[in-house]
Design a protein around this nucleic acid. Structure first.
Lengths: 221, 221
DNA sequence: AATTATATTTAGATTTGTCTAAAAATAAAG
DNA sequence: CTTTATTTTTAGACAAATCTAAATATAATT
């Protein structure tokens, strides 16, 4: 059996290796991601290595084993399906569901996850636009670009966000940006890469480069 | 904060005190209910006493404090709402949901529970016929009698069961008994109190006294 | 009331996950 | 190619929840 804590480490390793370019993940990276000490991480890496969830080489770093990767995909699947449930069925806002889903993803029952998936109509993306792995662990890749990469005159529709914390999502709510929102770049300032844009053909807004980096769009060709 | 383990102890104490006549619950009772040692129970009782969840007197026994009672009702509410969700929305059978709900009841979020309650239409009883406490902890009492107490000729409708384990519920499935099933006592044998009955005005079945004890009915006057 | 039986608690040890501080290995800089 | 800085691991300790075995308290029985 895998404990809830072990699952959290697997998830952290997966997340870090997704966003970084490097093959191996470092002890300190995991420690800061999980707000714990490097020593605790080392202890856990030993344990996960013995359980064959990771490939671990002292002082070098760590990566998920095939078994660990499957575990990570299952956790991602559960997390994103529960987020979808909370938003679609219970009416939560997209900035309220992360912490609850964080608890629900640890519930052990394959049957439960698969029935939930069916009940939700086999969604391909969660409320933040992240792809939901299917029962086989397969993910639907979408043709998306960062808002940062668009230029003056470009148009597109918001399909996802990179950050999931309350503060960031709340800011988007205030500006009027959501999944499905249509954007048109009125002007991109060379000075600081901030972007003035038109939202759903009505409001205007100015976004900093830091915000733009975290918004994904499907570009209208 | 209350840990998941502490919650399990609170639930056990509540359950034992419900089914027994005595005011105080003993250490050994809790130990056997939770499949653990008496020594572990003593340790935990100290802890729960310090947290003012229980009233504990060495060698005498234990009972829930007002705070502990509220905790127990909340857990019951969560457990039964999740069981309802699993059966009503995800299509699980009533004998498959206990273990999953046992995990889900530990999820911390009052908002989640209340939204779930609303989503389910504020049900008063769960799939086993047990009453679901509302947000204030109030329980709807139902006018029910044990099948054991009925006599030849009596009629009634099944509204609940006392045992929730898979084997027992599976047996009822096989016999054709469910919540809502109508029963008529054809004959109650004096010898061993076993009962021959008619199910939904069609099939016949013979139930032992041990089984009858665990079935609750609303008696037709 | 003394003795036996049962129930409960204490003592001491174990496991899991965590910590701080110190040591060792690797990477970076001169 | 040393020296310095950074990263990682080890050593030792702690809190939570558990265990077994031994001691103590309560209940039951003669």
């Amino acid at each position: 059996m895998i404990t809830s804590t072990e699952e959290d480490y697997i998830k952290a390793i997966f997340n870090i290796s997704q966003r970084g370019k490097k093959e191996l993940v470092g002890t300190n990276q995991i420690a800061s991601q999980m707000s714990t000490s490097a020593a605790s991480v080392t202890d856990m890496l030993r344990k996960l290595d013995k359980k064959e969830m990771i490939i671990y080489e002292k002082y070098k770093g760590v990566k998920l084993s095939p078994l660990g990767t499957i575990k990570a995909m299952t956790l991602l699947r559960k997390h994103r399906l529960w987020e979808s449930f909370l938003v679609e069925k219970l009416g939560f806002a997209w900035d309220e569901v992360h912490d609850i889903a964080e608890q629900m993803e640890h519930i052990q029952s394959t049957e439960l996850v698969n029935r939930l998936d069916k009940y939700l109509g086999y969604p391909k993306f969660d409320p933040h636009g992240d792809p939901i792995p299917d029962a086989q662990g397969t993910i639907t890749i979408r043709n998306q670009v960062s808002l940062s990469s668009l230029q003056t005159g470009d148009k597109g529709m918001v399909v996802g966000v990179k950050k999931h914390d309350k503060d960031f999502l709340n800011h988007l709510n205030q500006v009027g940006i959501n999944i499905g929102t249509e954007l048109e770049i009125i002007l991109k300032y060379d000075y600081d890469q901030s972007i003035k844009l038109n939202i759903n053909n009505s409001n205007e807004a100015l976004l900093t480069a830091a915000v733009c980096e975290n918004i994904f769009l499907k570009k209208f060709s």
